[in-house]
Computed example of a mutant assay.
Amino acid sequence: MARLFHVPLSPYCRKVRLSLAEKKIECELVEERYWEQDPDFLRRNPAGKVPVLKLDTQTMAESAAICEYLEEAYPEPSLMPKGAEARYEVRRLVSWFDDKFHHEVTSKLLYERVNKKVQGSGYPDSKNVKAGAKAIKYHLDYMAWLLDHRRWLAGDQMTLADFAAAAHLSCLDYISDVDWNRSEAVKDWYAKIKSRPAFRSILADQVPGFPPPPHYADLDF
């Protein structure tokens, strides 16, 4: 069985969890307090970050590289389209959410509201929280625009781009920081994503001191 060292409200860990679950790869979840820089964990990943996946004889770090490996080693069901242009678009959007969205939204809301308290590293910075609350509106509008032209974010089939976006939004939804009324298209897209069996373990996550809102695990909102 695979073993994933993770934290529950990490979008990068959730993206890997979704990929594993969609491909029906059984995985043991091991919660890792990576900020404590435990020597055993640093031996697994000297970068000191999660996720870290142990699969067969491999120990792998970096969520993008892990997901690419899973796609190559376990090609069915596929989370990448076949054509070069379509695959580029998936990778572009994965980078959009894991880089731009993370920097402008996730780090400003989730990390300020939750991570600082969990890690004992101070109090939320109100300027960052306000900036994140403003930026998420722009990103939701961009997603709405994409979904007006496509069935899924990157095209006509569900891909890793949808999982990357859902990983970030599900973390933010856990702390009620997503206005689902802003776009019916985005809300319907997320309802489809979180209704998938791959999402079940994520919707069961609990972070001590941070209970999720009632709608979090409600498949119909």
Rank of each mutant, 00 (worst) to 15 (best):
L93P: 00
W35M: 02
E31N: 02
H149L: 13
G155T: 04
R150M: 06
L29V: 00
A84Q: 07
A167I: 10
N128V: 06
G120T: 09
E68H: 08
P11G: 06
V90N: 02
Q119E: 13
Q119D: 03
E85D: 14
A167Q: 07
K82S: 15
L169P: 12
Y34P: 00
F210W: 12
Y174I: 07
S63P: 05
A167F: 06
I202Q: 00
L93T: 06
Y142C: 03
A191F: 03
A185L: 03
Y111F: 04
Y190W: 12
C171S: 01
T106D: 05
A84K: 08
D205F: 04
A131H: 04
M143F: 09
E184N: 12
K130L: 15
C171P: 00
S107Q: 12
S63A: 14
H6Y: 15
P124D: 06
Y74T: 11
H149K: 15
I25W: 11
A198T: 05
D98P: 02
S95R: 15
E36V: 02
T57P: 03
F199E: 05
R91W: 04
K116Y: 02
C67T: 13
M158Y: 08
A144H: 13
P75V: 11
L93E: 02
N45Y: 07
F210A: 07
P75L: 07
V114S: 08
K108Q: 10
G83F: 02
N115Y: 13
A198H: 07
Y138S: 09
Q119R: 12
M1F: 00
N45P: 02
K100G: 00
K187G: 01
I193H: 04
G132R: 01
